[in-house]
Structures are given as structure tokens and as C-alpha cells.
Amino acid sequence: MSDVIIFVEQRGGHTRKVTFELATEARKVADMLGGKAHAVVLGGGAPALAEQLKGYPLDVVHVNDDADVDTYLAEPEVDYVEALARELGSSIVLVPNTMHGRDIGSRVAARLKTGIVADVTDLKLEDGKLVCVAPKLGGAFITSSAFKNTEYGVVTVRPNAFAAEAGGAGATVQPIAKPAGKTYVVKIESHVEEAAAEIGLEEAAVIISGGRGLGSAEPFDSVLKPLAKAFGGAVGATRAVADAGWVPYSMQIGQTGKTVSPRLYIAFGISGAIQHKVGMSTSGTIVAVNTDAGAPIGEFADMLVVANALEVATELTRLVEANRSA
């Protein structure tokens, strides 16, 4: 028997869709393992978010609006999750595979002296073992792994891989005690928002992505953003355009950027270099617009339209917006 703990990444009571995906999946995994599904929600705004999580099929939501979580980087969160895992005993910790989630997950794993399986897209029970399925090497292989030599396990879960479904009998919300005797030294001075995207790239169901073929920085704001908005999605980019300073690096997808797998990925003026491909080739549907019929992206896109990227993007935005208001 093992319990399941989800780490809720949040700030000021706001979280991402992946939290609800984790909450939904936690129930399934807890049932497989014959344990309970727990969530840990920490920092300013935590109580309100905990109330919201009651609508998901969890057993217990542990909450503390500890100001240290907002003031100090990562460490307080790691302490809480570790403390809960030790209190529960044998347990599986699920964290989102985001920048912050990976950081928390790797430290919790180290504290518990256990393993971590990253970027997991499916979880199942085989021969009494929890099997974690994850694409590796840029989607070139699908791996199945399990934990051994340990009573704990940490899994970083790829956003968008699991459905988020409200339901359940209503979790108990209860306070979690602040771990005692800790001092913190790494201080967060300020937050700066650059891409004020409401939807994170890693969890967007639709990504409108641009490359050098768009010609300049301007269309990212004036064309791709409205198109992404019409889809309720987010804007991504290649490294070439991030290097050119057209967009911040936080928008870069690929080997040295973010790994995404939205339901729909539209690539405007992107050649489809291997380093870009490995960050997005597990997307549901891939559509590319490129003036070069021989662009490498044609080898793995479901549809390649040979045309001017900027013009097609502009016209497609019009069509999608018209469809929405129709």
C-alpha cells in the first residue's frame, strides 16, 4: 500500500491546469496502490486554492499559507513535502514537469533517497508495481520504468498528458504543520513577468509557434498572439528567433528549451531542425506553413502547407476568430 502526494505549484492562489490533472490522476494511482490521495498547497492564497481542490477526487488537502514559502526559494516547499511523505510512510510524490516542479521533485527525491522518473505521460500497475511511462530522447523511445530499493518514488508529470476531471466526495482540507527547526537563506527579492501569458507553454492545448520565416519580431505580437488567443493557446518559438532577440527564451521550444505536447501545434516559418523537433514531436496534430516544400518539418508534420507564413497566419486568425464569434 502506498499513498500518493501531489505537490501543487501555485502563487497567490493561482495555479495551472496541470494541478487539476495531477489531482485527477492521483486518485487513480492511489486506488491502484490501495492508498489515499493527498495534495499539499503552500504559500499565500493556499487556503482559497485548497477549497477549489475539494472539487477534485482527493482524500486530504494539506494547507499552510506560510509566508516563508513566498519569501524563500524552493526549500520551504521541499521541507513540507518531505515531512508529509515521512509522516505517511510509503508514498509516491507527483509533481508537475515544469521548471519549478522539477526542482522541487529532484530535491524531495534526494531527501527521501529515492528515484525520480521524469516527464511521465502514463502511470499503470503491472505485477504489483507502479509503472511510469515516459517518452525519452526527444520522443525517439517510449520507456517504462519502476521504482526499486525504496519505499518512496517521485514522478514528474508532463502537463497535458492526463485529463483533469472534477468529482469525488469532497476532500478534507486540513492544516499542515510548519516543519520545525529550519532556517532559510535563499531569498526571492522580486518577480518580473515578461510573457504575461495566462497559459503556460507546457500546458497549453494549442501552441502557435514561429520561426525565422516570419521575418521579424513584430508578427509574434501582432499576429501569432491573437491567433493563439483565438484558440485559447500559447505562443512558442524556435531558438533562432530567441537568439535573435525577437522573443524571450522562456518561449523557446526544443532540446535546450521547453518540451511540449499540445493537442495542436502550428509551426509558422520553422524549418524543423532536430533540436526543435525533440521538443514538440509528441504533439497531437502538427501543421506547418513553410515556403520550402522540402523543409525538414514536412517529414513529421501531419500537414505542410507551402506558403508565406505571415500571410497564412494573418488569414487563419481571421477565420478562427470568425468561427468563434459565429
Binding site: R16, L73, T98, M99, H100, V185, V186, K187, I188, E189, S190, H191, V192, E193, E194, A195, A196, A197, G200, L201, E202, P248, Y249, S250
Partner: peptide, 12 residues
């Protein structure tokens, strides 16, 4: 430190 939508200034 990079975050999902920008960065935070951190000292230690």
C-alpha cells in the same frame, strides 16, 4: 531565475 512567464530575482 527563469519562471514560466518571466523571472524572479533571487539572492543567497
Amino acid at each position: 531565475c527563469e519562471t514560466d512567464n518571466g523571472y524572479q530575482v533571487v539572492n543567497g
